[in-house]
């Protein structure tokens, strides 16, 4: 009933663990069998290993989380060697999330991933936590268009572009990425935010600004997903603050083909299972035979 096809990839259900919130799956596999998930997005990968940012990295807000991890990751090669075989041993779609700061670094990363059995590449043009690059790509349509166009030319995998809610115009951005050859879109990444420690009279994060996620962003993320689904013809994975099956259903009804769950994994390690089971019960209670029956159901 929850079976979903996304860019030609058969998924058990439309619930995918979001990048950066699920490691490479191992930690959560100690709590439950991660093969039950529709898919897993890897932590954002870069060509070289990155240590990430100094100073505080996480800060809680009412209903939200601000993070400044700074793309800490072991590098694409180490991922392919040590983590991909583990993920592949699980019966779930494997999505490699590729970060970067220059177009060249994306191209290098895609070349490596081309030769592997990852199902899908999620191109993160929107990480707010890497100085120089990253962010500008996600904000300016023309820069994003050029990056996606060049990546598309060499990419042998389905290509999903992850959009930033900080884009100057989210609909325009989505359309340009589609035009540049994206096979699908995921949105949203985190919202640029900040926190100040009033006792120390200082910003909390060394990088000043960082990314807000969690339930606090859901209504805005949902609005953006609704708008983008109305504009493009390629499939969309919706995310931003999803913490229950109702939240997930809302994104599907807005037009997303699948959803990703990020920060909510921190609330309860097996929350994705609650969401999957909840969606299934909901569909049954509605007399639906397939999840596809509710996709876009709230669109007018």
């Amino acid at each position: 009933m929850l079976e979903t096809v996304f860019n030609g990839i058969a998924m058990k259900n439309p619930v995918v663990a979001a990048s950066g919130t699920f490691g490479f799956g191992r930690e959560y596999d100690e709590f439950f069998d991660i093969s039950r998930l529709g898919g897993i997005c890897s932590k954002g990968l870069t060509m070289e290993e990155r240590f990430g940012n100094e100073g505080e990295r996480v800060y809680e807000t009412p209903s939200g989380l601000i993070n400044s991890i700074g793309l800490q990751n072991p590098g694409v090669d180490a991922f392919l060697r040590e983590d991909l075989p583990f993920l592949r041993s699980k019966d779930t779609a494997v999505i490699a999330n590729l970060g970067g700061s220059t177009i060249e670094s994306y191209l290098e990363g895609v070349e490596k991933l081309n030769e592997t059995d990852v199902d899908l590449i999620e191109l993160n043009i929107s990480c707010p936590n890497v100085k120089h690059g990253g962010m500008a790509l996600g904000i300016k349509c023309d820069i994003a268009y050029e990056a996606v166009r060049q990546v598309r030319q060499i990419c042998k995998k389905p290509l999903m572009v992850k959009l930033s809610p900080n884009a100057e115009n989210i609909v325009e951005m989505a359309l340009r990425c589609e035009e540049a050859g994206a096979d699908s879109l995921s949105l949203v990444n985190t919202f640029q935010a900040m926190a100040i420690d009033v006792d120390k009279r200082r910003p909390v994060f060394d990088n000043l600004f960082a990314g807000l996620s969690g339930p606090a962003i859901l209504p805005i993320a949902l609005r953006m997903v609704y708008q983008v689904c109305g504009a493009v013809t390629i499939p969309v994975m919706g995310l931003g603050g999803i913490a229950s099956w109702r939240d997930a259903a809302a994104f599907l009804m807005a037009g997303a083909t699948a959803v990703q769950v990020g920060t909510a994994n921190f609330i309860k390690p097996d929350i994705c299972l609650d969401i999957i089971d909840g969606l299934e019960q909901f569909l049954r209670s509605q007399g639906c035979r397939s999840v596809s029956e509710i996709i876009g159901a709230a669109r007018q």
Partner: peptide, 14 residues
């Protein structure tokens, strides 16, 4: 350390 996930997934406590 301040922790978000507590399991090694978020890299917030590095």
């Amino acid at each position: 350390r301040h922790m978000a996930c507590g399991v090694g997934a978020c890299l917030g406590c590095t």
